[in-house]
C-alpha cells in the first residue's frame, strides 16, 4: 500500500476512533515513529493520553497545516487560522498543549506555548497563580524579599499601562 492512500486509525483515550490520512497523522513525530516500526498492515494507533475532544482539535490542526503546505497557503492566512484555532477555553488550551507535547507536534506545541505566554503578559503574580492553579510555595519572608527585588518590574508595567 502506498503512503498516499494509507489511512491511519487513531483511537483516543475514551475509545473514539478517528480515520486520518497518513500524511496528516505523521505530522506527529510520535505516530511517524510508531508507524515506521510496524508493518504496513497496521493501521490502528492508540493514543491513551488524549481524549476525543482534544484529539479532534489536534487532528483539525494537523489536517489544516498538511493541506496549507500542500497548496502553499499564504503565511497571513495560516497566521489568521492559527489565531482562530487558539480561541478555546483555558482547559482545552492546556489539554492541547499536553497532547502536542505527548504526540510530539513541535509547531502546535510552539503555537500553544506562545498563546499561553501571551495570556501571562501584564498579569500580577496572584493572577498568574490563579490562571494556572498554582499555590505559592515561598515563605512570607521570601515573598516580601522577592517583591522588593523585583519592584522595578511592576514600575515598568505601570509605565507601560499608563502609556497604553
Amino acid at each position: 500500500m502506498t503512503e498516499k492512500g494509507r489511512i491511519v486509525k487513531m483511537v483516543s483515550q475514551d475509545q473514539e476512533e478517528f480515520e486520518v490520512e497518513y500524511g496528516v497523522a505523521t505530522m506527529s513525530t510520535l505516530i511517524a515513529n510508531v508507524l515506521q516500526d510496524v508493518s504496513e498492515e497496521t493501521t490502528t494507533v492508540p493514543i491513551p493520553n488524549v481524549n476525543a475532544q482534544v484529539l479532534a482539535k489536534v487532528i483539525e490542526y494537523c489536517r489544516y497545516h498538511y493541506e496549507a503546505k500542500r497548496i502553499d497557503q499564504s503565511e497571513e492566512d495560516i497566521e489568521r487560522w492559527n489565531k482562530d484555532f487558539m480561541k478555546v477555553d483555558n482547559k482545552t488550551l492546556f489539554n492541547i498543549l499536553i497532547a502536542a507535547s505527548f504526540l510530539d507536534i513541535a509547531d502546535l506545541l510552539d503555537l500553544g506555548c506562545k498563546t499561553v505566554a501571551g495570556m501571562i503578559k501584564d498579569k500580577s503574580v496572584e493572577q498568574i497563580r490563579e490562571l494556572f492553579c498554582i499555590e505559592g510555595d515561598f515563605t512570607e519572608e521570601q515573598e516580601a524579599k522577592m517583591r522588593e527585588e523585583n519592584n522595578w518590574g511592576s514600575e515598568m508595567s505601570q509605565e507601560n499601562n499608563a502609556a497604553q
Binding site: 510552539d110 506555548c113 506562545k114 499561553v116 505566554a117 501571551g118 501571562i120 503578559k121 501584564d122 498579569k123 500580577s124 503574580v125 498568574i128 497563580r129 494556572f132 498554582i134 499555590e135 505559592g136 510555595d137 515561598f138 515573598e143 522577592m146 517583591r147 523585583n150 522595578w152 518590574g153 511592576s154 515598568m156 508595567s157 507601560n160
Partner: peptide, 15 residues
C-alpha cells in the same frame, strides 16, 4: 515564549 522582562520577573515570584 514570554518576551518581556517585567513579566518574567513576576513569573519568577509565582512558585
Amino acid at each position: 515564549w514570554v518576551d518581556d522582562g517585567p513579566t518574567l520577573t513576576r513569573c519568577a515570584q509565582v512558585c
